[in-house]
Design a protein around this nucleic acid. Structure first.
Length: 260
DNA sequence: ATGGCGCGTCAAACGCGA
């Protein structure tokens, strides 16, 4: 079973690319981030026509996440616990029945957090703390799950072509990196890093300054697996070829193959 | 050396991203 995640930077702008990718790569599940659409305007029909069930948590103009699955959803939850007043659409969780039992798939769009020293950075850290607390609860259930999405965290210097360029950025702050490391310490597996230990694995290249042509990238989109999902890990990868398409997203899809 | 884009909202710049 192939589970992918892709920050598409606007579903309306990326609908043709998304459909092409799904037809070509045929993932069983894909998590989208930054759909920038309200639920009612999400083009669910176009995805249903090629065989996907659709679960959406959108908002007007910004943010927004979705999960598409060939297998039906048993349950869908649209909120990350811990802040009932949080209006930003950054989280959706779905349970899918698979031959080996059940798989919980979570699509996240973690806050960017720039600029430093503002409420945006404290919101980022608070949101990541909520994610950690929720992950702990899920880990206690000892079930297979994957938290997939745009974490907006560069975990290590090896995850950037030019780490020195990011030292004043929220994505590479010690506090952000520590939040990611805590998820690993608590037992989650970074699937892409496990399968590709070396340098040069990136998932985002800025639109500006010819970043992709220079391969001036960063790795900020991740798939974290629970121990029960990691037991089933076969391979993981990054589909950087989509960054060379016409009108690309600045992020590319990342995926895992699980033996489920 | 520096800066170089793109999306959505709305109908001209602006917020936002990373």
């Amino acid at each position: 079973m192939k589970v992918a995640t892709w920050n598409i930077n606007g579903v309306k702008a990326r609908i043709e690319s998304a459909l092409t990718y799904l037809r070509q790569e045929n993932p069983d599940v894909i998590c989208f981030q930054e759909i920038k659409s309200v639920d009612e305007n999400f083009p669910a029909g176009a995805f249903e026509e090629i065989g996907y069930n659709v679960a959406v948590h959108g908002q007007k103009g910004f943010n927004g996440v979705a999960i598409l699955s060939k297998l039906p959803f048993d349950d869908v939850t649209q909120r990350l616990p811990g802040a009932d007043d949080d209006e930003q659409a950054r989280y959706i969780e779905a349970v899918i029945s698979v031959p080996a039992g059940a798989l919980k798939v979570i699509s996240i769009y973690a806050p960017n957090g720039n600029p430093l020293g503002t409420e945006k950075f404290s919101y980022k850290l608070a949101w990541l703390k909520r994610l950690e607390q929720h992950a702990r609860k899920l880990l206690a259930e000892e079930a297979a799950f994957v938290i997939a999405g745009d974490y907006n965290i560069i975990p290590e210097p090896v995850d950037a072509k030019r780490p020195a360029a990011w030292t004043e950025d929220a994505l590479f702050q010690p506090e952000s990196r520590a939040a990611y490391r805590r998820l690993l310490n608590e037992g989650l597996t970074d699937a892409v890093r496990l399968c590709h230990p070396g340098p040069g694995i990136y998932t985002f290249w800025d639109y500006q300054a010819g970043a992709f042509q220079k391969d001036d990238g960063i790795r900020i989109d991740h798939l974290l697996l629970s121990p029960q999902a990691a037991d089933r890990l076969k391979t993981a990868g990054v589909d950087r070829f989509t960054r060379g398409w016409e009108k690309p997203s600045d992020h590319v899809p990342v995926w895992v193959e699980l033996d489920l």
